[in-house]
Design a protein around this nucleic acid. Structure first.
Lengths: 238, 238
DNA sequence: CGTTAATTTGATCATCTTCAACATGAGTGG
DNA sequence: CCACTCATGTTGAAGATGATCAAATTAACG
């Protein structure tokens, strides 16, 4: 049995945000019971037909595209409260989404989406907001990769994960990266070796401590100062 | 007086696509008369409140974001038939859009958008499609910049412009780049000098000829072959 | 506890940036 | 219409950032 939306810990940042009781009831009728995914399992794959949007309830996911010459590119990491699936909004998906750890998602079927948007103003608004966030996040990442040094990219990535944890009510200085170094490297457009070296340097500089995938930010201010105007997009991409 | 949507040369690829007469009439009532912009003029600026979506009617635009440390990043070029403005869909814009040449746009005010989407199914679909295209285009560019060599990026850029011209019914082998080299370089995340050198090399290889901003593709097949699985997104970003 | 995957570290190398100088064109006012 | 000026674009040489290759370590997991 699925936890109802109004009891969900994410209700403040997910679709239920700002709804009254009637609207909440209506929303819940149109959201499927949450689905479980084990680490490595596929939420949806490229070329699959669009069947709805997904809200991450727990755990985390990565989405990736691959080019015809076989190269893969991770285009986003998705944390609880974030909405996934816009890449297939009209027809079929072009990216694949995979669980980075054991995770849960809530699904809003595509057929119910129009109905919800038409009948609950704030759902419509929330979706629009998510779309705009998506675009903004994309722009930020593009700027990051196109213009900034490898060090800047890593710092901004850490800052971004920290911010997103904070938004969900978790610690912004102690958290775990659910993805391997290689995924971070791919996402940021660099070699895993470079990630490794730069993290080591941050540790030497006593700004962040790393134990495996566990992160402890020692000097949050310094991290923020160094994070090159990469505003908090706190958003998803799919 | 604005040319009506059904007489517009872009009706097949713009919002009117697939509408019947009644729907067309309804659409036209909700689209403002087209607006003119001179080269360099601003369609909207970052932080401006969202007031609607724009369809490029003629000419071209670029959109850019800037980080707090002053760096600017061009995040998209927009050609006729393409829709601009999703970055502000919920509240206010975070990118600025500037005309690259004398251009015209049609505006769909935000207040009319929900109405149109609710009442004309294919407009709703078209918007969704544009959003999905946006995400896809983003993913392609990200892959391009994060993973590919400078040469690949330039080739894919040319191929992309060619494809978008073709889609609009123009030549895919003879066209003009409306943006300066510096803008291309910024967009692709490299130095203008590198662009210059790579274009020169393509010319030496007898694949493309350049006269200023005029492009003539000599060996389209070779250009396609070299363009690293960067599928035609034929889409916009804003 | 062994086997494989993930991560780190070192050394070398390539690509692309940067700096500098120059060339070319477009736009403007006389 | 021409001359001037500034923006845009090209080319060369040197240098730096980050990639690649190789090897060693360490963790994850059955």
């Amino acid at each position: 049995m699925t936890l109802s939306c109004d009891l969900c810990a994410l209700s403040e940042i997910c679709l239920p945000a700002g709804l009254n009781d009637d609207e909440l009831a209506l929303l819940e009728k149109n959201v499927l019971p949450s689905l479980k995914f084990k680490k490595g399992e596929v939420l949806y794959a490229a070329s699959e037909e669009f069947s709805g949007l997904y809200a991450v309830k727990s755990g985390s996911f990565k989405s990736a595209v691959s080019s015809s010459d076989g190269d893969a590119q991770i285009v986003g990491f998705h944390m609880p409260g974030e909405l996934i699936g816009f890449d297939g909004y009209d027809a079929h998906h072009t990216s694949s989404v995979v669980a980075l750890e054991n995770s849960m998602v809530c699904k809003v079927p595509g057929s119910h989406l129009d109905f919800l948007c038409s009948n609950i103003k704030s759902v419509s608004k929330h979706i629009h907001s998510m779309i705009a966030n998506d675009v903004r996040a994309h722009n930020s990442v593009l700027m990051l990769i196109a213009q900034k040094s490898a060090e800047d990219r890593v710092i901004c990535f850490l800052k971004n994960v920290s911010d997103r944890n904070k938004k969900r009510g978790f610690s912004s200085v102690d958290f775990t990266l659910s993805m391997p170094r290689g995924d971070i490297a791919n996402y940021l457009g660099m070699a895993p070796e470079t990630i490794s070296r730069l993290l080591a340097q941050l540790q030497d500089d006593k700004i962040v401590e790393f134990d495996r995938r566990n992160v402890h930010i020692i000097d949050y201010n310094e991290l923020t100062r160094r994070s090159c105007g990469h505003e908090d997009p706190s958003a998803v991409r799919a």
